[in-house]
């Protein structure tokens, strides 16, 4: 099967500082791929390249088998690439309902969007009229996910889903991510804390200093190597 998303030997930079040195990752429909690594490894930049929001120096962004390097991120979003950035990006002083209403730009009606969001995250229905900023971090992350799902994504890009959340909440969120993937959505998850995401990932890649140092199935061997890769020594 042709991968929905593929980064092929991508190099990217911030000004003169190159942060990605030939990264290659691919995500197929229904697959959860975890991009792991310590701070500054280039995970978020890889995600931004995949969403089209960061330019590549060389290499290719292949979507659905077609070279889309340099495509406008708005077009990619319309086609079905959905990036949920680090920090959730909900509007804290708007109610949950109004946050969902913001997604009607995708062409879906308010009722459709709320139906999808409230079915997957029933707690949001209870909090519908509450300001998003007054909810817990986990609930805000659910709202961010619900907003992402409202765009009917083909590929979901998640950046640090677990950030600032209790392990129990993270576990529940990742169960939802696995459920989303089972419905045919390709999911690329960037995580600093590997334990949570490896439980649901079909494939994992560990990045260190802008390179994919190790990739494969998230088996015990990879888990054992993770700490060594994080600390910069080879096993």
């Amino acid at each position: 099967m042709t991968p929905l998303l593929e980064l092929r030997d991508v190099r990217a930079a911030y000004g003169k500082i190159t942060v990605l040195h030939g990264v290659s990752v691919s995500v197929s429909a229904g697959q959860v791929v975890a991009l792991l690594g310590p701070n500054g490894a280039g995970k978020t930049t890889s995600l931004n390249v995949a969403a089209g929001t960061h330019p590549v120096q060389s290499g290719q962004l292949i979507l659905g088998g077609r070279d889309m390097t340099g495509a406008n991120p708005r077009d990619l979003a319309r086609a079905g690439i959905c990036l949920i950035p680090e920090g959730r990006g909900v509007f804290p002083n708007l109610s949950v309902r109004d946050n969902l209403l913001m997604m009607t730009f995708t062409g879906h009606s308010r009722a459709e969007i709320e139906a999808v969001a409230f079915e997957r995250f029933p707690i949001l229905a209870k909090r519908a009229n509450q300001p998003a900023g007054s909810m817990s971090g986990g609930e805000q992350q659910m709202l961010a996910l619900a907003r992402g799902l409202a765009t009917d994504p083909a590929v979901l890009l998640l950046d640090e889903l677990s950030m600032g959340l209790a392990p129990l909440v993270v576990g529940r969120l990742y169960e939802q991510v696995a459920e989303i993937a089972r419905q045919g959505v390709g999911v690329l998850v960037v995580e600093q804390f590997a334990a949570a995401v490896l439980g649901i990932a079909d494939h994992a890649a560990v990045m260190v200093r802008g390179r994919v140092e190790r990739e494969g199935a998230p088996d015990s061997e990879l888990r054992a190597e993770l700490s060594a890769l994080y600390l910069g020594s080879s096993t």
């Binding site: 042709t2 929905l4 429909a29 229904g30 979507l63 659905g64 088998g65 077609r66 889309m68 390097t69 340099g70 495509a71 406008n72 077009d75 990619l76 319309r78 086609a79 079905g80 009917d152 083909a154 590929v155 419905q183 045919g184 959505v185």
Partner: peptide, 21 residues
């Protein structure tokens, strides 16, 4: 929503995009 239909639609919509900007 089936896997194929969404993936196919994704590929079709990508095909309609003009790149680069």
């Amino acid at each position: 929503m089936t896997t194929d239909s969404r993936a196919d639609r994704f590929v079709r919509e990508l095909g309609e995009l003009k790149i680069p900007d």
